[in-house]
Simulated assay, not measured.
Amino acid sequence: MKLAVQEQLVPGRSLQEKFAFAVEAGFDAIELRGKGDFHFAGRLTELKRALADGVVMPTVCVDMPHFIGDFDPAKRKDAIQQLRSQLTVIGELGGIGVMTPASWGQFSLRLPPFEPPRSAEEDREVLAEALGVLGEHAQRNGVLIMLEPLNRYENHMVNTLADAVSYCAMDSIRVVGDTYHMNIEEDDPCRALAEAAPYLAHMQISESNRNQPGTGHLDWGAQLATLDAYGYDGYLALECRLRGEPEVVLPQTAAFVRKFL
């Protein structure tokens, strides 16, 4: 397993500077953020220059105001177009793929008004249709579209790894595990990882409190041993809040996680 860190967490004025810091701190790669309005495609020159300079950028985490599970058809359509573009770009860079939740912050069954404007069956139809389009585009570009489950307060459609696996209708649709969301939703995180292992393409890591690993109560030894036992050899990408200054806590975090690898 290799360590990555999201670009916004790392000090530096350019991707080259960020990567140099990340490597010195103990990371192997930078995880990119994919904003909307085709902003990510607008970075192609910057990204290609960074790639030529040796910056490792395997994955993109979507960073948009709306997603493929939005209740608004126009916003769903835009999210699909944005993700198609991001898949094309990461394909040009020789990366692994792009990850997205079904939605974020749109609705929770655990908070008022409790009744969503769309049925569970309609939710599934909407997501399956979007992922089908994106899966075909990903396949043509030699990359993956990766579905990330979020906790029940941030998303009402896909909360567990098993939920996400149920949408893997083609080889180019895969699953992202996030240790923070798993801590809330999975009865047994290690069992969930084991059962999802054939579909697991990427992992994002943060603590039970959403800060960096080592500041909460997650059993890192058990979860990382499970990933190793089932042959996961992808990235562990740091996506969290930092408790402390990045110059101090990022090297500490890399060292903490590497103790279990």
Rank of each mutant, 00 (worst) to 15 (best):
L134Y: 05
L261G: 14
E24A: 05
N151G: 14
E186R: 10
G95A: 04
F38G: 13
I90L: 05
A20D: 12
M203E: 00
C168Q: 04
E148N: 13
A25P: 04
Y167K: 13
H181Y: 12
Y167W: 06
T160R: 09
R43P: 00
G244A: 10
H39S: 15
L261E: 11
V165W: 01
Q223G: 06
V126L: 06
V175S: 09
L238Q: 06
G214A: 13
D228F: 07
P246M: 00
S108N: 05
F71I: 07
S206D: 01
L87G: 14
F107N: 06
D37R: 15
P246D: 00
G142W: 04
H66Q: 14
A194N: 07
G54D: 08
Q204W: 11
Y199G: 01
M203L: 15
N183R: 09
K75S: 12
I90T: 14
Q82H: 11
T215P: 13
S119I: 00
Y180H: 13
F71H: 10
L150K: 10
V165H: 05
S119T: 02
A255F: 00
H217C: 13
L134T: 01
D228W: 08
Q106H: 13
G69F: 02
N155G: 10
D53T: 08
K35T: 02
F38Y: 15
D219A: 10
A169I: 05
A192P: 12
A138E: 00
Q212F: 05
A237L: 12
M182I: 01
P58L: 02
A20Q: 06
S206C: 14
G216H: 11
D178Q: 11
E46Y: 12
V5I: 08
F27A: 05
T100S: 15
E185H: 02
L87A: 08
L127V: 01
L51H: 07
R210A: 03
V89K: 13
P251E: 01
L193R: 00
Q252N: 11
P65Y: 08
L9I: 00
R140M: 09
G12W: 06
L111R: 15
G26P: 01
F256R: 07
N209T: 00
S85A: 15
R241N: 12
R241A: 09
L93S: 14
H156E: 02
P73Q: 14
D188I: 09
G34V: 04
S166E: 03
V10G: 02
F21A: 06
V257E: 06
F71W: 11
G221I: 13
I96E: 11
P213S: 10
E245V: 12
L47D: 11
L161C: 08
C168K: 05
S85R: 10
R43H: 13
V143D: 03
A120M: 05
D78K: 14
Q16V: 15
T59H: 12
I145M: 04
D37Y: 14
T160M: 08
A254L: 07
A225K: 14
E31C: 04
Q6P: 00
V5P: 01
E245D: 13
I145Q: 03
E247C: 07
G12F: 11
V5H: 03
V133T: 14
T226A: 10
Q252W: 08
